[in-house]
Nucleic acid binder design. Structure first.
Length: 456
RNA sequence: GACCCGUUCGUCUAACGGUUAGGACACCGGGUUUUCAUCCCGGCAAUAGGGGUUCGAUUCCCCUACGGGUCGCCA
């Protein structure tokens, strides 16, 4: 019988939730959910100078938005708390005492406590990167000085506690993983080279090693390192730009992991079902914003009507579209087919709900030069105004067809001018049902208005 | 500089040592449609380079190049 899986995500609250971090969190969450294990959220807030409350809130709400619920951690509680490192000094003192009892801790000349690293090869087994062997004593006895551009002598022994009594990352990270009984450490490849240090600490503390999986890093589209200011680096960007959490999860899951077949559109539930640590690949990947957009549009289409309304709500409100308007459900169905993001939803259907439309100069330019535009619009206006049929999509289409025949043009020639008149835009949802929703009076008025502003 | 990890179409990726090296996004072209779009069809496009091992290498080994990471009393 194997021990139940416990994974963790351990952010330090010094900024927003970065997509790279979100992916690390996702892999941990997916592995826990896939195996029926436990997902722990631990806040590594030992750097008092850089931590902020706002950052902590942003990270937590970002995870919530993405749908990654944690079984243990802030708010959720759990048996291995507290889940803020700033509240765990007592735990660290206890483990320090244990480490001191092993005789491998000493105080250096500056008053810091150091862990004496073993002068022997340490083997790290990594599920993704394979096995590697390093001697920390040899490796750490010199250090690269970036300014001098050369190796300088260095103390290989690891500082674990500063002279002021505060603990260092490597120590608290390992202690917490031991104390919280973490079985799988899934983190960025930037920690791979630190792992021998961690392994040495596990061994000195006589704790069983977790399974390590170091995942490749994400880079910008141009291959450069992703920094906090880069476009699309923060989960907040995706929220504001109208992405669906399921699409963002889907996209970042695929950046460094593959189900090994040709499927690539997955709901969170499907990801949980399909995700395997062994499917993680070894090379860095770059962000492709267009593919992320495409996935978002696919997820948008798969949303049921109720969810679509819920997800769109805040975006509709921003554009003053009334949520209780009886035409809204039909309008949403109409616009979803063509929307890539939620922000495009209100834009696409605004003409239905607003009293007036603005026609941008460049949009007007698309028809103003064409031959007999005013005549075409006159014809259409006349047909719409004269008809006594009910204002339905079918009847509207019939009116356009008849007008086109009378005017001796193809139906398509009427569509763009009509769209511009009715919506002020050159693109958008399927025009005829849109006209139905806008209403006869408004369509007629808007065509008349356009004719007036058309240059002769 | 030392050590570690990596390198398949522009991008994300697939391929028991044997495939015409597959899929997706993007891009280009054609078609359907009432317009833009969707949709359908088609096209473009890759094993970083050089040596081995092997009947046969994208796959295994070595070298080089390139990319990334670590070398903190940041996490």
């Amino acid at each position: 019988m194997s021990t139940p899986v416990r994974t963790r995500f351990a952010p330090s609250p010094t900024g927003h939730l970065h997509v790279g971090s979100a992916r690390t969190a996702l892999y941990n969450w997916l592995h826990a959910r896939h195996t029926g294990g436990t997902f722990v959220l631990r806040v590594e807030d030992t750097d008092a100078a850089r931590n902020t409350e706002a950052s902590r809130d942003a990270i937590l709400s970002g995870l919530e938005w993405l749908g990654m619920d944690w079984d243990e951690g802030p708010v959720a509680g759990g048996n291995y708390g507290p889940y803020f490192q700033s509240e765990r000094k007592e735990v660290y003192d206890r483990y320090l005492a244990q480490l001191e009892a092993s005789g491998r801790v000493y105080e250096d000349e500056d008053g810091a406590l150091r862990f004496r690293v073993p002068d022997q090869a340490i083997t790290v087994d990594d599920l993704v990167c394979g096995t590697q062997t390093i001697n920390l004593k040899k490796q750490g006895s010199t250090r690269w000085d970036a300014e001098l551009k050369k190796d300088v002598p260095s103390n290989p022994d690891l500082v674990i506690r500063r002279a002021d009594g505060s603990y260092i990352f490597h120590f608290v990270n390992v202690v917490d993983d031991i104390d919280m009984k973490i079985t799988h450490v899934i983190r960025g490849e930037d920690h791979l080279s630190n792992t021998p240090k961690h392994v040495a600490l596990y061994e000195a503390l006589a704790a069983p090693l977790p399974t390590f999986s170091h995942i490749p890093l994400n880079l910008n589209a141009d291959g450069s390192k992703m920094s906090k200011r880069d476009q699309g680096a923060s989960i907040t960007d995706y929220i504001e730009q109208g992405f669906l959490p399921s699409a963002v999860c889907n996209y970042i899951a695929l950046l460094g992991w593959s189900p090994k077949d040709d499927e690539e559109i997955f709901s969170p539930e499907e990801l949980v079902k399909r995700f395997e640590l062994t499917g993680i690949n070894r090379s860095n990947s770059r962000f492709d914003f267009k593919k992320c957009l495409w996935l978002n549009s696919e997820h948008l289409r798969r949303l049921d009507a109720q969810s679509l309304l819920e997800k769109s709500q805040s975006f509709l409100k921003d554009q003053n579209i009334p949520l209780d308007d009886p035409r809204l459900p039909a309008a949403l169905q109409l616009v979803r087919e063509r929307a890539e993001t939620l922000t495009q939803i209100p834009t696409g259907i605004a003409a239905i709900f607003s009293d007036t439309v603005e026609i941008e100069a460049d949009v007007l330019g698309k028809i103003s030069g064409k031959e007999n535009i005013a005549g075409l619009l006159q014809g259409l206006h006349g047909a719409f105004a004269a008809s006594e049929d009910e204002w339905t999509a079918d009847n509207i289409k019939a009116l356009i067809v008849v007008s086109a025949e009378k005017l001796d043009v193809k139906m398509g020639a009427l569509m763009l001018p009509c769209r511009i008149a009715a919506t002020g835009k050159s693109g958008g949802p399927d025009l005829i049902p849109l006209l139905e929703l806008i209403g006869r009076e408004r369509v007629i008025d808007r065509i008349a208005a356009l004719i007036k502003v058309l240059p002769e």
